Simulated scan of single mutants.
Amino acid sequence: MGEPQLVALLRPVRAGNAFEETVERLLQAIKLGVVAPGDKLPAERELATQLGISRVTLREAIRSLQEAGYLDVRRGRYGGAFVVYEPPLPAHGDLRRAVNAMGPYELEDALTFRMAVECGAAQVLAASVLTDEQRATLRRRLADVNDAAPADYRRLDTAFHLAIAELTGSALLAAACADARLRVTDLLNAIPVLGPNIDHAAAQHAAIVAAILAGDPEAARKAVKEHLDGTAALLRAFLA
């Protein structure tokens, strides 16, 4: 399938809830920006094999996401299921509405969950013996988010964070980090992309990468914690 993040997200579904889980997995990949707006999902045969489902179930899931406005299905030689969903631009009240939709305790729970899995992923990766390819991938993801235009920043920031978990080689950890990110995606999308915040985040991202490449698990954990503490503080400031 090529893209490691997509491989991690689109793991086999359970037979008893095949349709619902397929919709969930595809929607997760779309909302996290792993398949960018305008890009095409993998070929039907490949996707069905990856998810461990029938092509009939896959078509039903794709049809439901097309009806919901997430995908555009085109026929013909250059056809396929193309992502048309784009996160809406932040508007006044969006963050409060997103938090209210989560429930009174879910915000703190989601932030705690994200802290645990992302700190853990960074520690595991920093304790690993990294190949030249892994090091290059991590540096490339950092460069991508540093060079991102404001409209692409959230998507490439997500790709950077998910790459750390993927590079550990643990599919379960990669899936947990994707789940943790998805729980706060609507909240992050409701915050304007601010220049000073991007600059601050860039320095923190660089510290995370430096600690991982240096093989220092504790420094990696601390760098991720500082970064996620900053994100949580920003969310709380916009809610105040």
Rank of each mutant, 00 (worst) to 15 (best):
A91H: 10
I30V: 14
A126Y: 13
V13E: 03
P42W: 04
L142N: 10
E3T: 15
A175R: 09
I53A: 08
T57W: 06
A36P: 10
A201R: 00
R221Y: 04
D199A: 03
T112P: 10
I212H: 04
R75Y: 09
V13S: 13
R236F: 02
D157E: 06
I198Y: 01
G80C: 05
P196Q: 04
E67D: 11
Q66S: 01
T137L: 15
K31R: 06
A171E: 08
R45D: 07
D152A: 12
F160R: 11
T185H: 11
L173W: 00
A148W: 14
Y105G: 02
Q50H: 04
Q123R: 11
A202H: 11
R139P: 01
T22Y: 14
G33T: 05
Y78C: 02
A223H: 14
A203G: 04
L27Q: 06
F113I: 10
N197S: 12
Q5M: 13
R154T: 07
L234Y: 15
A159H: 10
A15M: 05
N146C: 11
T185F: 13
M115V: 14
M102D: 06
I191T: 11
A178K: 04
Y78K: 05
P4A: 10
D186F: 09
E44V: 13
E46T: 09
G215E: 08
A18I: 15
A101I: 04
R96I: 05
L111R: 15
L10I: 01
Q66W: 12
G80P: 06
D229V: 15
G93V: 01
L111G: 13
D132Y: 06
P196G: 03
G52A: 00
A201V: 04
Q134E: 01
L58M: 13
V56Q: 10
S128V: 08
R97L: 05
A175Q: 13
R75T: 05
P88G: 01
E86C: 14
G93Q: 02
L95Q: 02
P192K: 00
L125G: 09
Q123D: 08
A8P: 11
A174R: 05
S64L: 15
T168K: 12
I164V: 03
P42I: 10
L142P: 01
A110V: 12
L173G: 00
E3G: 12
V145A: 12
G79M: 03
L10S: 05
L194F: 03
P88F: 05
Y85E: 09
A174H: 06
D109P: 13
R75Q: 13
